[in-house]
């Protein structure tokens, strides 16, 4: 689609895989780090947890996610993969970004209600994260033919309703 950029595909893919690895690792690490924040915390531990999670989130994990998604978007256009498994994968990545936003809420809660905030138990969320990442990997590696999944009939054909106003015919 953009011929002069095509030689960069392997490099972009390497960048994509490196940054998504960093991103996903960070999404596992941050809830575990934040779980150390509890009501009996002292100033030293509090400052340590705040610095580690805040700088980890703002300067490592989120930039990695941004670069992963941006390089992935460029790859979609360069390889012209406008196909169903990719759309399904993007919806899964949207859930991953939802998880990312949930982590940011815990970080903000730890910042704005110091000591009083009780962080969530990280076991179940990280299990859900594992399933989500496995789903994304399955979609991109197996590239399943999702067109066989039946769609509701009312969504496959126009309904043929006469609109109460004219539109240009061509």
């Amino acid at each position: 689609m953009i011929p002069w950029l095509e030689p960069s595909i392997p490099h972009l893919k390497a960048l994509h895989i490196t940054t998504l690895g960093l991103w996903c690792a960070g999404l596992f690490a941050l809830p575990l780090m934040l779980a150390r924040h509890d009501p009996a915390i002292g100033q030293l531990d509090y400052a340590r947890i705040r610095r580690a999670t805040h700088y980890g989130y703002t300067f490592v994990v989120t930039p990695a996610g941004v670069v992963a998604i941006a390089s992935g978007t460029l790859l979609i256009f360069l390889r012209e993969v406008f196909v169903l498994w990719l759309f399904a994968k993007l919806v899964c990545v949207a859930l991953l970004v939802g998880f990312h936003a949930w982590v940011s809420y815990i970080i903000v809660a730890a910042a704005e209600t110091p000591g009083a905030h009780r962080p969530p138990e990280p076991l179940l969320p990280t299990l859900a994260l594992t399933l989500l990442i496995l789903a994304i990997l399955s979609l991109v590696l197996a590239k399943p033919e999702l067109g066989v999944i039946p769609m509701p009939r009312w969504l496959e054909q126009p309904w043929g309703v006469q609109l109460p106003f004219d539109v240009p015919s061509r």
Partner: peptide, 21 residues
């Protein structure tokens, strides 16, 4: 320096990916 600004960033970049697709 603010975490919520970065949260908005990553959601918006994913939105661009979906709009492009």
């Amino acid at each position: 320096i603010r975490a919520p600004a970065w949260t908005h960033f990553v959601i918006a970049v994913l939105l661009l990916s979906l709009l492009g697709a």
